[in-house]
């Protein structure tokens, strides 16, 4: 008897890195976030955030807005609609992986002495 196993859905390679996922998830909790707030939460350097944001911008997941607070320049980051969809899909994939492993563990007869 063969069982058909549906492979886990594909994860989004753009978001898969933990820091990228952290930044995407942080932005999903707000309309916009200032660059410094994102950096402080992710606990990485300015250069790292810039690199990640550039990659996410290239994928059309994040948009960047330059503004001023008084005379001080500020950079604001926000998820695009595509970014929100991609994040939702990625989280759904992670959830499916977690649940699939749980289901497999629950139904696996295990290796007996005759195998």
């Amino acid at each position: 008897m063969t069982e058909e196993h549906v492979p886990p859905p594909a994860l989004d390679e753009v978001i898969q890195h933990p820091t990228r996922l952290t930044i995407m998830a942080f932005l999903s909790g707000c309309l916009e976030a200032e660059f410094g707030a994102v950096r402080d939460y992710a606990q990485v350097s300015d250069a790292s955030v810039s690199r990640i944001v550039s990659a996410l911008q290239d994928a059309d997941y994040v948009k960047v807005r330059k503004g001023y607070v008084g005379k001080r320049p500020r950079t604001w980051l926000a998820l695009t609609a595509e970014g929100r969809r991609a994040l939702t899909g990625h989280l759904d994939s992670l959830q499916a992986i977690a649940e699939s492993a749980r289901h497999a563990a629950a139904t696996d007869p295990g290796d007996g002495p005759n195998n």
């Binding site: 008897m1 063969t2 069982e3 196993h5 492979p7 886990p8 933990p18 996922l21 952290t22 930044i23 995407m24 998830a25 942080f26 932005l27 999903s28 909790g29 707000c30 976030a33 939460y41 994040l87 989280l91 992670l94 959830q95 992986i97 977690a98 699939s100 492993a101 749980r102 497999a104 563990a105």
Partner: peptide, 29 residues
């Protein structure tokens, strides 16, 4: 019978990623 189920390590990594994402979202809120 072949299986392509995620390993326990994969599942653990997925759960940790989900927790980290939820924590980040709540932090922004």
């Amino acid at each position: 019978m072949t299986r392509n189920d995620p390993s326990a390590a994969d599942a653990q990594a997925a759960r940790q990623a989900l927790e980290a994402a939820e924590h980040a979202r709540e932090a922004a809120r």
